[in-house]
Every structure is written in C-alpha cells, then in structure tokens.
C-alpha cells in the first residue's frame, strides 16, 4: 500500500505536536469531524509519548462528565495544552473565519459557525491550524469576518495562538510577534511557486525549505494498525476510505 495523503498529513501534524521548541503537549483535545488530527494524536500516543487525549466526539468513554462545558472550563484553567482549529477562511495573520463570506452573518456562503474557536484560540497555549483544502478561496489575504483573531493587542489575556498551519500542500509555521506565516515544508509535487499560486496571502520562506519527510515504515505500521483500531468507532468512514477497514454493521 502506497503512502496515503492522509497518512502524510497525520505524520506532519504528529511532528508538530512533538516539536521540542513548542510548549509541552500533555493534554490534547480534538474537536468534531477531525479524523486526521485525531490520527496524528493517536500516532503520538501509540509511539509511547505520555499524552492525554480528549476526543470530544468519542461516543463510548467520552472524557467529559460535566457536560460539554467541561472542555472550555479545562481550557480556561490552562489544562488543555493543544487544540486544533480550521476555518472556511484563514488569512495571513492567522485570523479564522468559521462564520461565512459576504456580510455578517454570511450572506455569501454561510459556514456552520464559530463553535468554540473564539475562546479556544486564546486560551490554549498552542493551536495547530489544519485545513486540507489549500486554495485562494480558503487561504485569503483578509478574512471576510473574524471568528477568532490570530493575534491580540496587549491588555487582552491570551495564552497562545497558531503554532503552524498544515494543508494538503504544505506546512506553514506562524510567528505571532510578526503575525506572519513562513513556508516550512512541502507536500509531494509542490513548489514554493505552486504554493504561492494557491495562497491568497503573502508569506515568508524558511531558509531550509524542503519536502516534508515521508512517513517511516514504523509510523505507517502504527497508523494502519493501532491508530485505525482506536478510530474505527468514531470515524468509520475515514477508516474504511483510507485504510480499507471494513465498517461494522
């Protein structure tokens, strides 16, 4: 079986989770409809790293016993170290738009809504932004409306912001002090020029820009075995599509 794009993205996310330069990720929460970030987290855990995973949409064994507010209470206290967010639009200052395009509240295309982003983005020490679609309609110069801002002025309490943005084409890192992305690595078939052509915002380029490392045999074995086992209940369609895992009746 050749390396699947989803596997490559999960490995790229896992390397960011384990980045020694970032604050430690002892407790990671993963939101709804996020199979690739969930796979990355399971990969990290199954590699033997001591990390607690709270998967919001896990039906059996859901980690929260105080209702859906508990995630936000934990995060408010600083007990969640890492969260994943995406957006219908993401701009060059890492502002996220989950509301829609056009005029408020989405007179062009209406997206589902902001969910907890307007809180989680501030209160989590680091956020990994993930959006598979990498196109000028998603990665825009300026979002039409802001669900959650990428940076905040002094006097506004904020623990962290985007660590990186991972797409189907590349990995960008984010520098909060300059509110600017840097192209850090490329997925197969991509070049700096192809990424520029697909990106609505300007960005810097890392001096050592290179291809994202291919998943190792060991990583692939864990993803296709232990990680798939963990994910089959919550993400049956994903496991069937990517790994050919038969769905339970």
């Amino acid at each position: 079986m050749s390396v699947q794009p989803e596997e490559r993205l999960a490995c790229a996310l896992a390397r960011l989770i384990l980045d020694p330069a970032a604050p430690p990720a002892r407790h990671i929460a993963v939101g709804a409809a996020s199979p690739i970030p969930a796979a990355a987290c399971w990969l990290v855990k199954k590699q033997g790293h001591a990390v607690r995973l709270s998967l919001l949409h896990k039906r059996s064994g859901n980690p929260f016993t105080e209702g859906s507010r508990e995630l936000f209470d934990l995060t408010g206290q600083g007990r969640i170290d890492l969260f994943f967010l995406g957006g219908g639009q993401i701009d060059g200052q890492a502002n996220l738009n989950l509301v829609g395009t056009g005029e408020w509240p989405g007179t062009g295309v209406r997206f589902p809504g902001s969910f907890g982003s307007a809180f989680m983005y501030f209160m989590t020490p680091r956020t990994i932004l993930f959006r598979e679609e990498h196109s000028p309609r998603v990665l825009v110069e300026k979002v039409d409306m802001i669900s959650a801002p990428g940076v905040s002025p002094p006097g506004v309490f904020r623990r962290g912001t985007a660590q990186a943005l991972v797409t189907g084409r590349c990995v960008f890192t984010f520098d909060a002090a300059r509110a600017r992305f840097t192209l850090a690595s490329l997925m197969p078939g991509e070049t700096e020029a192809s990424v520029r052509a697909a990106t609505g915002f300007d960005f810097d380029v890392a001096p050592g820009l290179a291809a994202a490392p291919e998943p190792s045999e060991a990583e692939l074995a864990i993803l296709r075995g232990a990680v798939c086992d963990e994910m089959a209940e919550t993400y049956p369609e994903f496991c069937a599509r990517v790994w050919g895992r038969a769905q339970a009746a």
Partner: peptide
Amino acid sequence: LRGVIGSDIL
C-alpha cells in the same frame, strides 16, 4: 468569560 475580544461575534 475569557477570550472572544477581537472576534466579530462580539
């Protein structure tokens, strides 16, 4: 509540 400041929701 923390957060939210700077969001267009507000």
